[in-house]
């Protein structure tokens, strides 16, 4: 689905990631770990083409997309759902409209998908909060809403950037459960996190691969996790 071939990224002279060769295989479930500042967010941004590799190549669905191909990038983001670290909502729209936004920007009237939307809201347990503005939601509600928005277009790949970062354990489990369920539906899932307990909890439920970023390189983590 997403293939890195000797890919690297640097901000000017400051190399963040280098010489990565790996593949996110269809239907796989993986964690991306590393200390804060290691480059996890950078790696995800390469995956949804918010950044372009400065060396090597990254292929999305078999194709290498140039930064100037704005429409191709937009189309890619319909196939790659992202749960952003800071959620990225439009604060002037109620949360239900934020969740439906990927439909809206694709010219699909959310009213045509009312059933799907209702089911989705129920799945993330936000039915009671549909009319609330995003800033009024709790951290857990925001994360669940972000998951709902990430999957509303039925993407093939779901990327989540520290989705449980500031949630208590119970809430983190609920969000993890949503992502595990998506993987069971056949979606490729990649979760960036530094929460090792979360990884252990997941490993009890799915076949998960752990990628570790250290010194700018991405390696498969050993069995110590």
């Amino acid at each position: 689905m997403i293939e890195f071939e000797q890919a690297g990224f640097s901000y000017g002279d400051h190399a963040i990631l280098r010489d990565m060769s790996l593949t996110l295989a269809p239907g796989s479930f993986q964690f991306l770990v590393g200390p804060s500042g290691a480059g996890k967010t950078t790696f995800l941004r390469l995956c949804y083409l918010d950044l372009a590799a400065t060396t090597g190549e990254v292929r999305h669905f078999g194709r290498s997309i140039a930064p100037s191909e704005r429409d191709a990038i937009a189309d890619l983001r319909r196939r790659v759902g992202v749960v952003h670290q800071d959620c990225q909502f439009l604060d002037h729209l109620p949360i239900s409209e934020n969740i439906a936004l990927p439909l809206t920007v694709n010219g699909i009237d959310p009213r045509e998908r009312e059933e799907d939307l209702r089911a989705l809201l129920q799945w993330v347990d936000l039915t009671a909060r549909v009319d609330a503005a995003p800033p009024l939601l709790s951290g857990g509600e925001r994360q669940r809403a972000a998951v709902a928005r990430a999957v509303i277009l039925s993407p093939d790949v779901i990327l989540a950037d520290e989705p449980t970062g500031n949630l208590d354990w119970d809430m983190a489990q609920r969000v993890l459960t949503l992502l595990v369920e998506l993987n069971r539906m056949g979606k490729t899932v990649l979760i960036a996190t530094h929460d090792l307990n979360l990884i252990r909890a997941a490993k009890a439920r799915v076949q998960a691969r752990v990628l570790r970023i250290a010194q700018g390189r991405v390696q498969l983590a050993g069995a110590d996790l």
């Binding site: 704005r70 429409d71 983001r77 439009l90 936004l101 928005r149």
Partner: peptide
């Protein structure tokens, strides 16, 4: 910020 968000969820520039 709004434009950034719209782009991240797959809005084309023409939209």
């Amino acid at each position: 910020q709004v434009i950034q968000t719209l782009r991240l969820i797959g809005a084309r520039d023409s939209y």
